[in-house]
Design a protein around this nucleic acid. Structure first.
Lengths: 166, 166
DNA sequence: TACTATTTTCAATACTATTTGAAACTTTCG
DNA sequence: CGAAAGTTTCAAATAGTATTGAAAATAGTA
């Protein structure tokens, strides 16, 4: 496999991986492209290399900036903006985790929290209370875990855990 | 909030949560309904309570069985089949994790594995090799972590980690 | 076996999400 | 200021996914 083919396959795979996890294909592909480019790219570059429209490129680049996965860059003497991905994969993982936690996990926890103490003595009511309580416990633990993984050194933690469990 | 409303809200939220993570709405809603029902439900029950078609109910129930999140049950004297969710939330988490690891993480790792040693001396080639290598390392670690979380006692691990990090 | 209850399949349809592209806007600079 | 270069927006078009519903298949039973 040569570089050209490998790059294409990587972009494709990262796109597919992203969409399985609820991140849209283009956003993941733009991210992939920036990840493997050794220097910042302009909007034009991204449009060309991925065959996508200007609007699409722009929108997804901004979404990536929102997620702290990409930075805007100014090249002196150039008027256009350039975009550059965060290359430290541990930081990438941290940013993605933090963003998703905020968007999806936290609202779920808030809902489950409100659902403690739903009244009723029927079997279904009991079943409901137990399930929401257990889920609350699980998601809260996960939340704490992720909180600390983002505040502290993820790399350290995962490495330690990997070694411990290997 | 009374039980009826809480159940509805929970089903809705679980559905939304699922779709953010690439699991389709109906599948997640069927799962939610079975999770909070104290006894096994028939296809009819599910259709009625969620207002979905027979085909939809059937297809998603089978998908849930595939993920080991739901079991088929036979009630003696009843000809129809009944469905019952795994109620242990730790097991639920384990099954979901294992399934997604198998479907999404493993193929990515296999690809990254093939991408070690792509030839080329350009800056882009170097950049590519570094990124795929780093990602390979990260995903492999994650894979190991998840492997052990499924083989060993997840509950123990997460609880310990939560306490450790709190 | 024939009848009936139940499950499964799948083509058609409905729905949702993504992408485009052109117009509006903003910034830079002579 | 006014033109040029670049960015952003957003309504419309397209593509992708999920759902329906009725027909086919299967399984249980008399």
């Amino acid at each position: 496999m040569d570089l050209r083919e490998a790059r294409e396959r990587f972009i494709e795979a990262w796109g597919a991986f992203g969409s399985a996890w609820g991140i849209n294909r283009s956003m993941a592909q733009v991210h992939a492209l920036l990840l493997i480019s050794h220097e910042p790219l302009s909007t034009e570059d991204v449009m060309e290399q991925l065959n996508i429209s200007r609007g699409n490129a722009n929108m997804n680049m901004r979404a990536l900036i929102d997620w702290s996965l990409v930075r805007r860059m100014v090249k002196s003497g150039e008027r256009r903006e350039f975009f550059e991905a965060e290359k430290d994969v541990w930081k990438v993982a941290t940013h993605i985790t933090r963003e998703r936690k905020k968007r999806e996990l936290e609202p779920l926890i808030r809902l489950l929290d409100q659902m403690e103490d739903i009244p009723g003595a029927t079997a279904d009511a009991k079943s409901f209370r137990k399930m929401t309580h257990d889920l609350h416990d699980l998601t809260t633990r996960l939340d704490t875990l992720l909180d600390h993984s983002t505040r502290r050194d993820v790399q350290w933690f995962v490495k330690a855990a990997t070694t411990l469990l290997k």
